[in-house]
């Protein structure tokens, strides 16, 4: 395991703790950034589909265990997000690669997550789109840009 992987591992663990304990203080209206998704996309952009989906699965399972929700649901959505993020990132220019991938990955993640979570229930998708998915996505993107700006290089460095 090179140092970059080790750094990502530590950041994932920290993000998991912060997401469950401190992120509530960052809430605006009822929107919160998804730190795990941000780190997952950064990792997948750097290491591609195989490691992206592996990280997605592990992060998703850990998040499911702590959240008290259905075990496997976060794992499924984050696995697919990690895989897609690792694949599509190559389509974007390097300068805007992370932010576009984060948007696309976040969108796919939330769609899978809400679709499975609401299976068999009568829910207004309009509400889910405009009250949850889109605002959360923008908030996550803004926080993601800040994290990428300050920690991106440090996480990427292989030495």
């Amino acid at each position: 395991m090179n140092k970059s992987h080790l750094r990502y591992l530590l950041v994932f663990l920290a993000a998991l703790l912060v997401q469950s304990t401190i992120v509530k203080y960052m809430e605006i209206v009822h929107w919160r950034p998804d730190l795990l998704l941000i780190i997952l996309v950064m990792y997948a952009v750097q290491y591609g589909r195989k490691l992206g989906s592996t990280a997605g699965f592990l992060v998703g399972v850990s998040s499911d265990l702590i959240s008290g929700g259905l075990l496997g649901l976060g794992a499924l959505s984050k696995t697919i997000t990690g895989f897609i993020a690792g694949g599509v990132s190559r389509l974007f220019q390097e300068r805007s690669q992370f932010i576009f991938t984060l948007f696309l990955g976040g969108l796919i993640h939330d769609l899978i997550y809400f679709y499975i979570n609401t299976l068999g229930k009568e829910v207004a998708w309009r509400v889910i789109w405009f009250v949850h998915i889109i605002p959360n996505l923008f908030y996550t993107a803004i926080v993601g840009m800040v994290i990428y700006y300050f920690a991106g290089r440090w996480l990427k460095a292989d030495d």
């Binding site: 589909r49 989906s53 699965f57 998703g60 697919i80």
Partner: peptide
């Protein structure tokens, strides 16, 4: 093989959902 690996993880996730 990325696609097979993805399918493996999806399968594991579904198994986890069933044995939650």
């Amino acid at each position: 093989k990325p696609y097979l690996l993805l399918l493996g993880y999806i399968f594991l996730s579904v198994v986890l959902m069933n044995f939650s």
